[in-house]
């Protein structure tokens, strides 16, 4: 191998460049194909919502609607209280995220910069909460919430998801990295505890806070398990659970109404897709941090 290189340097140079070029070509080709594969279901969702029922049932599927049929969207809005679902999702997401943020920042401060007896043991308790998911505790939680009369209320929907141990954990790591001298500077300026949190810690850890907030927003919008347990009336159902109802309602009576079901699905994914595309920068930095640990 080495010998050939010595004897024919220009040819090797050429073939290496060619190999590299074909390599790049195939890298692009495979990457594009795979991206198409991953994005295809979302494309199919969108495109199916614009098809007529007849076209949906063709045995030779069409990858572009022959005629765009927009009827599915008004139909969904007329048959189900979609605005209510959207509002519920929105309201619940905003409330849980802000509570998670406020309580999370305070707790993260206490466990990173605070000083009180039993701090380490109490933090272990918070970490322990990560190991007890709602999928384990939902029965007693449900009974407790029912006992307080919170089934089918916003408070029942929001409160059990108001604090995230993950949130606290992530923020604590970031707060810990802030040098103590900044806090001292704040104290010299006469700031109290809240002042230091708001004016020193939060601005210094802004990227981390934005990351966890965006993830909390997306998780809130998509959350399913607890909202399904605690809501039974359309007045309090979020979009995520309503989707299941919408799909089973059609499966019960109608024929193949997947275009309408897909229309509902499209409506429900628009906010998260936009949020993700807008804030992907923050989510992706979150990853590199996770990988570094």
């Amino acid at each position: 191998m080495a010998q050939t290189t010595m004897n024919n340097p220009p040819k090797e140079f050429n073939s290496a460049r060619l190999r590299k070029k074909t390599g790049v070509f195939f890298q692009y080709l495979f990457a594009i194909l795979l991206t198409a594969f991953f994005i295809f279901p979302l494309y199919w969702m969108l495109i199916s919502s614009f098809k007529t029922t007849e076209e949906l049932l063709l045995s030779k599927p069409t990858f572009w609607p022959k005629t765009f049929n927009f009827d599915s969207y008004p139909y969904i809005f007329n048959s189900f209280p979609m605005w209510r679902f959207i509002f519920n999702s929105f309201f619940m997401t905003v409330c849980t995220t802000s509570l998670q943020l406020i309580i999370g920042v305070m707790a993260a401060y206490a466990f990173s910069k605070g000083d009180f007896p039993g701090k380490d043991i109490l933090f272990v308790l918070i970490l322990g909460a990560l190991m007890i998911p709602i999928q384990v505790t939902f029965i007693p939680t449900y009974i407790m919430v029912a006992h307080w009369g919170w089934i089918n209320t916003y408070i029942g929907l929001i409160l059990p998801e108001a604090v995230s141990a993950y949130f606290i954990f992530m923020l604590r790591q970031n707060f810990k990295a802030v040098d103590e001298s900044y806090l001292d500077a704040g104290r010299v300026d006469g700031m109290g505890r809240i002042g230091i949190i708001v004016h020193v810690l939060v601005p210094m850890c802004k990227p981390a806070i934005v990351t966890v907030t965006v993830i909390a927003l997306i998780n809130g919008w998509n959350s399913y398990f607890w909202p399904k347990m605690v809501t039974t009336s359309n007045d309090y159902r979020t979009l995520s659970i309503a989707l299941r109802e919408i799909s089973s309602a059609f499966a019960g009576l109608e024929i193949m109404n997947f275009n309408k079901i897909m229309a509902a699905a499209v409506i429900s994914v628009i906010p998260v897709v936009f949020l993700f595309l807008l804030c992907q920068r923050y989510i992706l930095t979150g990853f590199s941090k996770a990988a570094m640990k």
């Binding site: 307080w148 089934i151 359309n234």
Partner: peptide
């Protein structure tokens, strides 16, 4: 008039409502 979901969903809701009423403080 409330649409309570399919028969089995309606039953789950009923179970919740029943338990809630049994222990409702007021």
């Amino acid at each position: 008039f409330v649409y309570a979901g399919s028969y089995s969903e309606s039953n789950q809701s009923l179970l919740a409502a029943h338990a809630a009423t049994l222990s409702a403080p007021n």
